[in-house]
Nucleic acid binder design. Structure first.
Lengths: 237, 237
DNA sequence: ATTTTTTATATGTCTGCACATATTAATGAG
DNA sequence: CTCATTAATATGTGCAGACATATAAAAAAT
């Protein structure tokens, strides 16, 4: 009695997930090697490889050369967040986008930022404070620090017309960086800008980006009350 | 004059990224097709395919059959969040893990949850309130709702010994779901549990998971002040 | 002019094969 | 017994060729 051949990597993946769900293979178990699975499923080893590699990426399997493939002990769930352009995010929700620059200054980099962005001491940074709004209500504060050494063109840009968020995405795309999410309580200046109560809990994103090792920009996004960042935990099957 | 062959997919990827960075290909541009690139780079089409597909996954390229591959217009940055077991997260930081169950009840599902979890009206849920702590200081509140229809075994579990977070990960792994991040202000009961001030801004994660279409569990994690969720935006090169 | 059908094309993926590489396990030297 | 060397093995990845599939563009029909 032969099973119909699983001749594409998705169906192989599904079958593997089914076996894990069904308890055929339990957490920590070593599963058969690619060649054996390929024979069993009636497909090429490359197909099995694609399926297993994809499952390893999503955290269900642990794979190591020679050691083989085993079902992950602590399946670390991975969520993929898409970080959109703020204007796009607001427009996609069907609101009218608004934008205003509040302040623009050149200042020596504060110590906290200098270390975070790995800057030489005394580097001058461009500091911008802006507000994005949805249907004329404040949506998010963008507090932006830009390293002019990394982006000389920034000196001539009028950020009352285009947000740093958008300009940087267009002109300095595809850089690496890191990102942190947390909550803070609104202080007076923030509450004024977001038109909310002092002390209210606000969702905040800190992000800094660099190209190679040179720091480009660091930004703090402080969202108005009610903001939710949402995504999906998708798993095969 | 020939270029040394780019004979692995990583170097092909690097070269493509270099061309985008260097302005050879600009945002929105159509790039040569896989066959041409393979010829130019001196490798197989499959290798180019692997490289471009990976770049499309990370949002740098848009690809469509017949239409070809172009540099993404609005490169949507993607961050991958790893959502660990709470106990593991605390231990990894070098703290002593503590756990306590506060309450356990069986209650009719509140309307808000019933719709979110897509439950028939009047379903009874198991409701648990627990606190995880690090070095004896409250770290996060776990407010958990479990659908006993989906996980009958849950009735016999003593959640004063093991957290729902951990038990569910062990016994109902690999489910799909969705997740939201936001901020709230501490009310009195929350402030009591987290030993913080009323009104303080707190980081919150709402997550609900299901297998197929059946709702399994929904959880709200309310983190103590100061919590930061951190990850890396990594890009090829 | 508009709609439908056909065709051409770029990506998507499978196959079978080969070799590279990491890492465990066996072997041998001291 | 311990440490270094060697062999065995599972995954990682490359190649050439083939066919599948989506879809933009061209051709045909209304």
């Amino acid at each position: 009695m032969t099973v119909p051949a699983l001749n594409n990597w998705q169906s192989v993946q599904d079958e593997v997930v089914r076996r894990i769900h069904g308890g055929v293979w339990n957490q920590g178990d070593l599963i058969p090697n690619e060649a054996d699975l390929a024979r069993e499923f009636g497909c090429a080893r490359a197909t099995v490889n694609r399926a297993l590699q994809s499952l390893a990426d999503s955290g269900l399997l642990d794979r190591r050369r020679k050691a083989g493939t085993r079902v992950a002990m602590l399946p670390v769930r991975k969520a993929t967040l898409e970080i959109p352009l703020i204007r796009k995010e607001i427009c996609d929700k069907g609101h009218t986008y608004g934008y205003a620059q509040v302040t623009r200054r050149r200042v020596p980099s504060p110590a906290r930022l200098a270390s975070k962005m790995n800057l030489p001491r005394g580097t001058k940074l461009l500091h911008l404070l802006c507000v994005h709004s949805a249907d004329a209500k404040p949506y998010v504060i963008e507090e932006r620090w830009i390293n002019p050494d990394a982006v000389p063109a920034v000196e001539g840009v009028d950020f009352s017309q285009i947000s740093p968020n958008e300009w940087l995405l267009k002109h300095v795309p595809f850089s690496a960086g890191d990102i942190a999410f947390f909550a803070m309580s609104a202080d007076q200046p923030v509450a004024d800008l977001l038109e909310c109560e002092v002390g209210e809990g606000l969702f905040v994103i800190d992000r800094s980006t660099r190209r190679d090792t040179q720091a480009i920009t660091s930004v703090r996004l402080i969202f108005a009350p009610g903001y939710r960042m949402h995504t999906v935990l998708s798993l095969p099957t």
